[in-house]
Each structure stands twice: as structure tokens, then as C-alpha cells.
Design a protein around this nucleic acid. Structure first.
Length: 257
DNA sequence: TTCCAGGGATGAC
DNA sequence: GTCATCCATGGA
């Protein structure tokens, strides 16, 4: 099984995780997952019923995906650096709110926002001596006030979260539907499409991907979101979203390696 | 002090 | 359609 736990957990697609020695603790929805990998052996323990195979995307044929996206030297280098990185299948609600929080922020700060929201509105969870809080459901957030959300240090995103909470029953879970929500533009809609809705050719373009794509594929010229997006889907094909994750991880850590 | 971070809304052309 | 500015927050 081609699977690298560390690459998959740490590549930036999820925020609510911690490393303790050889163990990775991930909190997804109302479940804590403890995962350990030695060589090619991976073990999971969860705080409740949970489909780890589906969550970590282990049902996907990663070799076939590599053959599909491996179209040039740049993506080949990224795959070579992070073999076994898989796309995680997130729950749409948690994914949407997480990426609303991601707007114009940094990963450590997004982690803090989500930790604060979970501690304020979620339930306490335990796995062994490790504890965390569940990601709050729409029902748990229903009575939240703007000030309570702001107290979670989400900044200007508080009104966007409140709006999503208020109309959660009417959310249409498609790219266009999500973009109809206040605070959700093409990038966040693409993130939710890729990480939660199974749209494997969604290609979220953040600052790192934009810089890298313009340099590698647009001769250093500025390109619009749609230009990059269209190029990526044509160039990488139906699994362009996997290419995006490898390139994101690759370019974000390029300077420090 | 200023710039930046897994962006998006708004308003001016 | 493109572009500048603003938005909270905290690290560098």
C-alpha cells in the first residue's frame, strides 16, 4: 500500500492534528484518530466508529493517479519528494468552515481559530490520555453570536461563519453553490470541492500555487485564476487536484529544504 | 514598522 | 474583466 502518513497529515489539507513521538493524532468531526506508521505498516486507533480507509483515501489507486498526472519534470519532482501523499476525504461542513477561516491567514493561525471554535462549541473527546474537542455541528453552532465567534479570534471571518451557520440547511454543495456564500470565492470553493466533495480535478490556487504555477508554466507572467485553473485541468487531467496537493507541499517547503 | 499569510467583497475604471 | 483597497490577527 503506497501511503505516507506524515506527508498526508502534514501537507496542509487538514489543520486539526498533532504529532507526539511516532504518533499522529488527528481530530475529524467527533472522532480522534491515532495513527502510527513503521515502514509500510500503518496502525489506526479511533475514539469511536470511523472509516479510516475512506478518510485517508486508501481506497484510491495512487499508482494510477501518478501515471495520470505525471506530465512534466516539475510534478515528477514533487511526487518524488512526497511519495504516498494522499488526499484526505473530509466532512463538507467542517471543511467549509475550516477554509472560510483560512482566508488571508496562516496555517498556525487557522489551527488556533479551529481549536478555539471546537473548544467553545464542540464536545470533549478522549482517546487514551489524549483529549481534544469535536468539530461543532451546525446544530451546536446554531445559537452562536457574532461576538462569540469573534472571541474565537477569527477576525473579519466571523460574519462569514455566521452567515454559513444561519443558512446551513440551504447550502448547495457544489462549486457554484458554495461560491454563493458570503466569504466563499473560487479558491475556498475549490478547496471544499477537492477535499470534501470528491471533485478530483478541482485545483485551488492560493499564493504558493499561484507563484509556482506562474513561474513553472507561464514563463513568470501573471495569470488569472481561471487561466491557471484551466491550464491545470488540461495539463494534469482528471486528477489535477492531486497534482495541486503535491505542488503545494513541494513549493511551500522548497525554500526550507 | 512593515510585510505576509491555503482570499474575498467592494467599488472604480 | 482587471485592479486597488480594506478586512482581524499574529509571526517574522
Amino acid at each position: 500500500m503506497l501511503f505516507n502518513l506524515r506527508h498526508t497529515v502534514s501537507c496542509g489539507q487538514i489543520f486539526r492534528w498533532n504529532q507526539a513521538g511516532d504518533s499522529f493524532y488527528v481530530t475529524a468531526g467527533d472522532t480522534i484518530i491515532r495513527a502510527e506508521q513503521r515502514g509500510s505498516r500503518t496502525s489506526f486507533k479511533t475514539s469511536g466508529p470511523f472509516d479510516t480507509r475512506r478518510y485517508f483515501g486508501l481506497d484510491k489507486d495512487l499508482g494510477a493517479i501518478y501515471r495520470s498526472i505525471n506530465r512534466d519534470a516539475t510534478i515528477a519532482a514533487a511526487i518524488r519528494r512526497y511519495p504516498g501523499l494522499r488526499l484526505i476525504r473530509q466532512e463538507p461542513w467542517e471543511c467549509l468552515l475550516s477554509y472560510i477561516c483560512s482566508a488571508n491567514s496562516s496555517i498556525p493561525q487557522i489551527k488556533r481559530m479551529l481549536t478555539n471554535l471546537a473548544a467553545r462549541f464542540g464536545d470533549e473527546l478522549w482517546l487514551g490520555d489524549y483529549s481534544d474537542f469535536s468539530f461543532p455541528t451546525p446544530e451546536q453552532l446554531e445559537g452562536a453570536t457574532l461576538q462569540q465567534l469573534k472571541d474565537c479570534k477569527v477576525g473579519f471571518r466571523a460574519k462569514f461563519l455566521l452567515n454559513a451557520i444561519r443558512k446551513h440547511d440551504g447550502i448547495e454543495w457544489s462549486r457554484e453553490g458554495l461560491m454563493g456564500l458570503d466569504g466563499v470565492g473560487p479558491k475556498i470553493a475549490d478547496c471544499v470541492s477537492l477535499f470534501a466533495l470528491g471533485v478530483t480535478d478541482a485545483f485551488p490556487i492560493d499564493v504558493w500555487i499561484r507563484r509556482g504555477m506562474e513561474k513553472a508554466y507561464f514563463r513568470g507572467r501573471k495569470a488569472s485564476y481561471n487561466d491557471i485553473s484551466n491550464f491545470a485541468r488540461n495539463h494534469f487531467g482528471k486528477y489535477a487536484g492531486y497534482a495541486q496537493e503535491y505542488l503545494y507541499h513541494f513549493w511551500r517547503h522548497e525554500a526550507s529544504q
